[in-house]
């Protein structure tokens, strides 16, 4: 429920702003000059704000589409990411967003068309023969706030017309209605992130249950959409072999392996400064108090733990998915 909406001067008259405001007639409306006045100031408490995040409607002016980190990809030769939104509906304790931004408010950039122009420009800059991937769920969940943002509704027709551009929608949501209403096309992958149910219940606050997400994934697959599977991050715990084994089995009991476009495994890693910020916010969290240690500026599980988990989960996935569908798409990996 959105109780407060900040509206940037530049988008006061934007049609998308009017649509969103109409959805929340009871919300408090506050004008601001630029979204950064609300979102960026230091001295904000992310944890307290996360209980009642406001929505900020803003215009993005530059850096619409950025190169993905080196090695980050799901098969395309060029990889970019774009963020129509900053921050996420959910509250996962391992998420880097809680250490990334000063504020927990949701920033939504309403000028979708500017992102589309920038995507076209990136496509023009690459060769006709190159497949180019655009990742959308880096700074937010691609689907979770669809009823507010209309992001999928706006971007599916755009990507359908550009078969060389592969769109990855990354999500933990079950809001797949917009996709199900649309005729599937090849160059769109909805990638679902999972941790085992017992881990999800403890660390992924506000996220739909694993079983519901598997169901949503299966519905998309059945409708003919390509889906992706992201075991990201891999969370170490006693008996992880069994819980990941059950997770993978449950997924492939519902989702035919041939519908899976790509899989990836993501180790739990934080830049050291970011980890410290998150621990300051959640000093009472056991996940963050676990066996993580600093190494080369990152905070991670010890190498042998990380390698063991990766090896086990890769083998589990390997029973269903061929080697060529394994990719690497985790920041800082």
């Amino acid at each position: 429920m959105i109780e407060t909406i900040y509206i940037e001067e530049a988008v006061r008259s934007h049609p998308r702003t009017s649509e969103i405001l109409a959805r929340f007639p009871g919300a408090r409306r506050i004008r601001c000059h630029r979204y950064g006045e609300v979102f960026n100031p230091r001295g904000q408490d992310f944890r307290i704000q996360k209980r009642r995040p406001a929505l900020i409607l803003a215009e993005k002016f530059k850096n619409f589409v950025l190169p993905a980190p080196e090695g980050f990809g799901i098969g395309g030769s060029e990889n970019f990411y774009f963020s129509h939104m900053l921050n996420c509906l959910y509250d996962c304790r391992y998420c880097f967003l809680q250490g990334m931004y000063q504020s927990a408010h949701y920033v939504m950039f309403v000028n979708h068309e500017s992102f589309m122009d920038a995507i076209d420009k990136r496509l023009e800059e690459t060769k006709e023969s190159q497949a180019v991937t655009f990742f959308s769920g880096y700074d937010c969940d691609s689907l979770a706030l669809e009823s507010v943002t209309g992001f999928v509704k706006a971007f599916l027709p755009f990507f359908r017309e550009r078969p060389r551009a592969l769109l990855e929608l990354r999500t933990k949501s079950v809001r797949v209605q917009e996709l199900l209403k649309t005729e599937p096309f090849e160059n769109c992958v909805t990638a679902f992130s999972f941790t085992p149910a017992e881990i999800s219940e403890k660390t992924e606050h506000g996220v739909p249950p694993v079983a519901s997400r598997i169901e949503a994934m299966a519905k998309l697959a059945e409708a003919g959409w390509k889906v992706g599977l992201r075991l990201d991050p891999l969370i170490y715990h006693k008996g992880f072999e069994n819980s990941y084994s059950k997770l993978v089995r449950d997924i492939f009991n519902a989702v035919p392996p041939e519908a899976v476009h790509s899989t990836s495994l993501g180790p739990m890693r934080f830049p050291k400064a970011m980890y410290d910020r998150i621990v300051r916010l959640y000093p009472d969290d056991r996940l963050l108090a676990g066996p993580l240690s600093p190494s080369n500026g990152m905070v991670t599980y010890r190498r042998h733990v990380e390698e063991e988990m990766t090896e086990v989960c890769r083998a589990l996935l390997g029973e269903y998915v061929p080697e060529e569908k394994f990719f690497h798409c985790t920041p800082w990996a």
Binding site: I30, Q44, A54, S103
Partner: peptide, 18 residues
């Protein structure tokens, strides 16, 4: 107050509505 603006400088602050 949900927004506080200094008439002299034009600078604004936004107490979070929590």
């Amino acid at each position: 107050a949900h927004k506080i603006t200094d008439a002299g400088s034009g600078r604004s602050w936004y107490p979070p509505m929590v």
